[in-house]
Design a protein around this nucleic acid. Structure first.
Lengths: 354, 354
DNA sequence: CTGAAAGCGCTTACAG
DNA sequence: CTGAAAGCGCTTACAG
């Protein structure tokens, strides 16, 4: 910077002001500085700036290993990165893939004094971990998690699930199963809230909640097959399956078809996410915008950092929307009749059964 | 740090040496410093350290928006992050999603003086861009790209494609199509090298290269359907399709089945990647380890940074392996016979055709 | 609008 | 093995 000052014939104070775009610099001085900076291809050392301002210009992002939910996390991170860049903040990534790394992170808190804010993506933190992060004494923003008293951004999963269920109900389905992942360590909130939405929609429609229609599956082919076996061996098969996430739904479609069940002719399948393959594989789904989630979170962190009046515990719930595709259809007429005979509120003039 | 020194009853010099684990500190002094640091929950300011050492402890990673290839990029980034963490380096992510961001990045070079090394993931850089990066005057490591004269880590795509092709050939296939993505902006190297491997394997087997069997498709259902239409309307259908990437292969299987063609009964489908859904959807594939790619690259950057003797232009090609699953099988006997009648080297004692 | 000077929190010769 | 002192490259009152 001293070189630039010398070349521009001004003091380093002026160079500093000029390169940061502070207003109180005469146009001539500014242009001389800009020329000199250009010629010497000068760039500010953030380290030096940080030392005096106490701001690093960086946001630490704590994220699980991406393979855990590659589409969601990858897309959300991309939105986050774009939002931070627009706010001129650098993104310092802390990727945590297992328990020992997790312990090490919260023990050493390497982000300390290294970032102006910390964002936590899709992590279900323990109370101790949350307290540890508070010690960093920087704003915290939670993504995909409702953290009471802290800023957070998340998809309105319950509303999304209700939306998806209403669609299936509108198609005429009355026996709708819900398939959840048995993985306990990842998106607990989402899974829980989606189940809430499932129940609410049933209630809205005046249908009973049937425990046997809610099944959990390990995230692999045998696991899914077993869960589907449970549904197919009920006294009465469901006419639709609302699956917690698209990647499971792909598998569900594949398993159903492999055992000769037509989708959607006999059973409709509805997913949640709008994974890129959903369009390819023609899966109806409740879309959530992972990108938007990340981008909104970046905007929130930026406003907390720059606007002292902003609410540091603001909650933002993002909407979802239904994307109907080829994996859903009205239930087969005969089975609709059966269902109508048994289900409490006979929706149309069809009746008589076993 | 001054507080720690006071509390420990030593100078800041000693504190500095102790917290960095420099050897020339007496055990008593060290333990006193450690106690004091603990009590005050002290952590070094990287900004201040950087200012004097000139090292930031950070590596900048330039990556396309993850949705472009979520599985590969996400997984590779995870491996990269783990490798950097092990080397005690922070990961500064620069996510570039469009041309204007790209231009802005290379214009401003925000990583300048902000990172000790720069890694470029899956970007096909122009010569000017590469020169711009050289101006940063830090080591460069390319991931998923062969950059002459610069360090790089990549999958051996040609060998992987040969491996996959040999498998199909060993099963008895003689008419094997190759389906590539028409997307021009992403993994050009991979696509090119996979095609090279395809041709080499044909040559090895003494089979002719047939232009009509190599098709390109847009990455959406209509695009894939059109490409498959081209193959199905050849005088003689292929008995196997080697697809450039798993996500396209899923679609290929889906399209083939939707038009009543049995996979693998009539046509075998082989992918490339070992995408997580490949196992679920029972797709045979040539596996590459994206995680390993990232992790290896992190190791390379770390060795370049710490070992002055390390080769700053080292190339590391990573292996692939075949994962046979249910989407591949020997060709149907009748069509094998036809193919044998036409193809140059009749492999077995089967012959006579149209 | 501009500059001289102090200081941010470290590390590192240097002297002991 | 330890400490006093200089200095890394900036920003920011302060005075003009």
């Amino acid at each position: 910077m001293a070189d630039v000052a010398r070349r521009a014939g001004v003091s380093t104070s002026t160079v500093s002001r000029a390169v940061r775009g502070v207003s109180t610099v005469s146009p001539e001085a500014r242009s001389r500085v800009e020329r000199a900076a250009q010629e010497l291809s000068f760039a500010l050392s953030r380290s030096a700036s940080s030392l005096v301002t106490g701001k690093t210009g960086r946001v630490a992002v704590l994220t699980p290993g991406l393979p855990r939910a590659p589409w969601f996390l990858g897309t959300a991170l991309t939105g986050l990165a774009e939002g931070l860049r627009d706010a001129d903040l650098d993104l310092l990534a802390y990727v945590i893939t297992d328990a020992s790394e997790r312990a090490a992170f919260f023990d050493r808190l390497p982000a300390r004094r290294n970032a102006d804010a910390v964002m936590v993506m899709s992590f279900i933190l323990t109370e101790e971990e949350r307290e540890r992060l508070d010690e960093l004494d920087v704003p915290l923003v939670f993504v995909s998690q409702h953290a009471p008293g802290r800023a957070s951004v998340y998809i309105d999963d319950a509303a999304g699930a209700r939306r998806g269920m209403r669609y299936l109900l509108n198609l005429g389905h009355r026996r709708i199963a819900h398939l959840q992942s048995a993985a306990v360590d990842s998106f607990v909130w989402s899974a829980y809230d989606r189940l809430v939405g499932y129940r609410e929609a049933l209630e809205e429609a005046g249908l009973p909640y049937d425990d046997a229609l809610v099944v959990r599956a390990e995230l692999n082919r045998p696991g899914i097959r077993e869960a589907i076996g449970a549904l197919l061996s009920e006294p009465q098969m469901p006419t639709a399956i609302f699956v917690e996430a698209d990647d499971m739904a792909f598998e569900v479609m594949s398993v159903l078809r492999s055992c000769g069940i037509d989708v959607p002719g006999q059973i409709s399948v509805l997913g949640f996410d709008d994974h890129p393959l959903a369009e390819m594989l023609d899966l109806s789904t409740v879309a959530q915008s992972a990108w938007h989630t990340g981008h909104t979170a970046a905007g929130l962190v930026s406003s907390i950092l720059t606007d002292p009046d902003s609410d540091p515990a603001r909650h933002i719930a993002l909407p979802t929307h239904l994307i109907p595709r080829g994996s859903t259809a009205p239930p087969p007429a005969d089975r609709l009749a059966e269902a109508a005979a048994e289900g409490p509120p006979p929706p149309g003039p069809t009746g008589d059964g076993a």
